[in-house]
Design a protein around this nucleic acid. Sequence first.
DNA 1: ACGCTTGTTCAACACGCGCTGAAAAAGCGC
DNA 2: GCGCTTTTTCAGCGCGTGTTGAACAAGCGT
Lengths: 203, 203
Amino acid sequence: MTESVTATGGGRRKGRRPAGEDTRAALLEAARQVFVEQGYDGATVRSIAAIAGVDAAMVNHWFGGKEALFAAAMRIPVDPTALVDELLGPGPDGLGERIVRRFLGVWDATSGGALIAMLRSVSSHEPAARMMREFITRVLFGRLVALLGADRPELRAALCGSQIVGLAMVRYVIRLEPLASADVDTVAAAVGPNLQRYLTGPL
Amino acid sequence: MTESVTATGGGRRKGRRPAGEDTRAALLEAARQVFVEQGYDGATVRSIAAIAGVDAAMVNHWFGGKEALFAAAMRIPVDPTALVDELLGPGPDGLGERIVRRFLGVWDATSGGALIAMLRSVSSHEPAARMMREFITRVLFGRLVALLGADRPELRAALCGSQIVGLAMVRYVIRLEPLASADVDTVAAAVGPNLQRYLTGPL
DNA sequence: ACGCTTGTTCAACACGCGCTGAAAAAGCGC
DNA sequence: GCGCTTTTTCAGCGCGTGTTGAACAAGCGT
């Protein structure tokens, strides 16, 4: 006990943190949460840092600024190729429903996910809009419609995007009942056929 | 010329404006424009006043604050009852397409309209979200599904809302091509059937 | 042991926001 | 024409934002 090391008693004020505790990761996690809840403009660097339990200046130290933190936080850890293959595995029948179920699964679990964050940011933050476009056309439905080989693939992808975006907005952002708390089966049965027609049917 | 009246020479600085020129109306018009383009948070009282050509303090004088100005600007001058009657006039056949055409007509003309303003504000501004909910359920589709007499009217109204919201987001906010510049016929043919099923078909 | 690098906090800057209060000019009643 | 009211501008307050620089502590190489 006599040794002074790591006494940390009460109010240490400056200096390096005792050990481990990856600040960067904590910041990223907090950023995801706050960006999803508040959107880019609504989220403040200070609030994110507070949730992560560190000083706001850490955002600049680790990421270089709010904008870069947003970009890093939105970098989603899913492999789109694998996802598409999985969805297409059982064949094109019931594909629409499967997509809806998949999205609702992710969203309901993480209370939104990165897509909701982008959706909340898109209005006033052009980079978020750009990400959103890229995400829908290239990652999400671009590959899907390409594999299905239908005509007018870009239009089909955009229409599928409008389904997903509309559903996410009404269910998670606007929170319009009874869609906001409807169970997965109901939503999938209702919205699935639209996607199915957009992907495999005539326009 | 000798009389001093209305000389206004160069840099008059304070005081009442010469005549007419309804400041309140100019403010309202500018507010609609800026709220549509930027959403509630993105729009600043100063920029609205600048477009209206008056001082920012006029917003407080005429409306009491930004919030009240937003509410006043969003008060839309359409009669929902008449609109519903007009849409239902030719019978329930082709109703979905007619709705889409109607919306696109208004939106493309006024580059969005109040609904886009609300859509851009909804993320971070709870009053806008409340307005949106009211608008969809009560004004827009509430009456419509009630008149059609189908089962689960609230769910149908919410689903219709998700169609319109998704379309508006992708076409006007995210601006995803080719949907953003697709002609009315294409969009109506693609989206109309979804609304039709939501309104008159099985879920 | 000592010094350099790195992680962290704190104080503060510059800016933009919504809003307020006082002053000034125009119009109105009489 | 004179006062009272209304409309308008201006200066600025208080606050919250993202960002910065200095100070300081912990660890690491040697």
